[in-house]
């Protein structure tokens, strides 16, 4: 049973208060009519399934009813970060910056 920090309630609550809503940061194409059938099919049906870090969207269903993002390791189930809708993961950003500086990968897990 996860213990999840809701970025809006600003505290941790038990998993039973939340619903998992799948992969985070999916964008609905701005002009669906211009999307090809393949593009639209990808948007509807295809999702990442990484071993390692995964960005997921959850909703605090029994609490504040707000949607937010989680950065989670799918191997250890460790939650590295939760952050509000519309923001980007600072942990991932730092890892990317670190790699660009030539630093070794953090132990937290491979970035998919």
């Amino acid at each position: 049973m996860f213990y999840i920090h809701c970025p809006y309630c600003n505290e941790r609550r038990s998993e039973e208060e939340f619903h998992a809503k799948g992969q985070a940061h999916l964008m609905r194409p701005a002009n669906p009519e211009e999307a090809s059938d393949r593009e639209w099919g990808d948007y509807l049906f295809f999702r990442d399934n990484p071993r390692g870090l995964h960005q997921e969207m959850w909703v605090h269903a029994a609490g504040c009813r707000k949607f937010f993002n989680i950065l989670r390791n799918t191997v250890s189930y460790e939650i590295l970060e939760t952050y509000p809708m519309g923001e980007q993961s600072s942990v991932l950003a730092e890892m990317t910056a670190g790699r660009e500086r030539g630093e070794p990968r953090r132990a937290a897990g491979a970035v998919a």
Binding site: H19, K21, M57, V59, R65, K66, F67, M85
Partner: peptide, 11 residues
């Protein structure tokens, strides 16, 4: 209700 919130909050 969650569906409405989803679209409003995320898109």
């Amino acid at each position: 209700l969650e569906w409405l919130e989803l679209w409003h909050q995320t898109e």
